[in-house]
């Protein structure tokens, strides 16, 4: 067996899902005995069979990846409860194994995957769970994405309707059906920070369920951003959300303003006042920046 053949075989076996009691499966999907498979390449010793030795790695893999995703979605875990959340993460990871050297990106596809898999969440909670997942991933993105040099007053002076403005890469805009910022903040306050460790083995983490605030459906628009290296959730109004989203999608300033106020019943003078307020606020927080290709990012 070549090195590549061995690695392909072991990678398949290590990533094969565990049983519900977190043990290695006795048989593969096509009915082969795992004990036979393991013995083709792993030596037994006087205490452990080939199966037992492979199982150590099989369990390690799942404990590690489940822990990594769980760490990024503590509020989703709290909303669903451990049992449902673990089932959801297992199913997600089966379909979305890691394709990056860093565990940081492992949960990136979870919000979209959850939208396509409502069966993992009680029907009444699907929209809430989706909102929570989106906000928790926005936090991850905002936490360590690039920060560009913000536009200065002189930069603003030269703008007109045809200008295109770039927004900070760490700024995430969300349209939500529940005020989940309150819920996520409540959970984060009760969750310790951690980071990737070295080559120590991973254990299955037992989570305690934090207390959650009650949630009633209400439309919320959020800007998730970083300021002084802390992540903040800022509620914005519908027009500001439309304006910033249009700019983020590369539309001109004129087109973005039109998109923001297309269905507005506000009088023109009120609109002008709002626009002035949005820009003052965004400029104060450094949300507008030079395009990433214009200059090197700053820390």
């Amino acid at each position: 067996m070549t090195l590549l053949e061995l690695q392909r075989r072991m990678s398949n076996d290590v990533r094969r899902p565990l049983t519900s009691s977190f043990e290695m499966q006795q048989r593969t999907e096509d009915g082969q005995a795992m004990a036979d498979l393991a013995s083709t390449y792993i030596k037994p010793n006087d205490r452990l069979t080939s199966f037992d030795r492979l199982e150590i790695y099989n369990r390690q893999y799942w404990f590690r990846v489940i822990a990594a995703v769980s760490e990024d979605f503590p509020a989703l875990a709290a909303v669903l409860g451990s049992k449902r959340f673990d089932a959801l993460v297992l199913a997600y990871l089966k379909e979305n194994p890691s394709t990056s050297f860093t565990l940081r990106n492992l949960g990136a596809r979870l919000p979209m995957w959850l939208a396509d898999h409502p069966e993992f969440v009680p029907r009444m909670k699907h929209a809430l769970a989706l909102d929570v997942a989106q906000l928790e991933w926005a936090y991850v993105e905002s936490f360590d994405r690039l920060k560009m040099a913000a536009l200065t007053l002189e930069d603003f002076a030269g703008l007109d309707g045809d200008s295109r403005l770039s927004l900070q890469p760490h700024l995430q805009l969300l349209r939500l059906s529940y005020p989940v910022d309150e819920l996520v903040l409540a959970v984060r306050m009760q969750t310790p920070e951690s980071d990737i460790m070295s080559n120590a083995v991973s254990e299955m983490v037992v989570r305690t369920r934090p207390k959650l605030p009650g949630m009633r459906r209400s439309r919320v628009f959020l800007a998730v951003h970083r300021f002084d290296n802390s992540v903040y959730y800022r509620r914005i109004d519908h027009e500001a959300y439309l304006l910033l989203s249009a700019l983020q999608h590369g539309r001109t300033l004129g087109e973005s303003l039109e998109a923001a106020f297309a269905n507005s019943r506000l009088k023109p003078e009120m609109q002008a006042e709002k626009i002035q307020h949005y820009f003052a606020h965004a400029a104060e927080l450094g949300w507008f920046c030079h395009r990433p290709t214009d200059m090197i990012g700053v820390q």
Binding site: T2, L3, L4, L6, Q7, R8, M10, S11, V14, R15, Y57, Q60, Y61, R64, V65, A68, P97, S98, T99, S100, F101, L103, N199
Partner: peptide, 22 residues
């Protein structure tokens, strides 16, 4: 050690076979 194959990562420090090829 090794830990990835065909673009998929195990995020574990998997042992190598002690061969001349490896």
């Amino acid at each position: 050690c090794w830990g990835s194959v065909d673009g998929t990562y195990t995020h574990d420090l998997l042992p190598l076979p002690y061969t001349f090829e490896a």
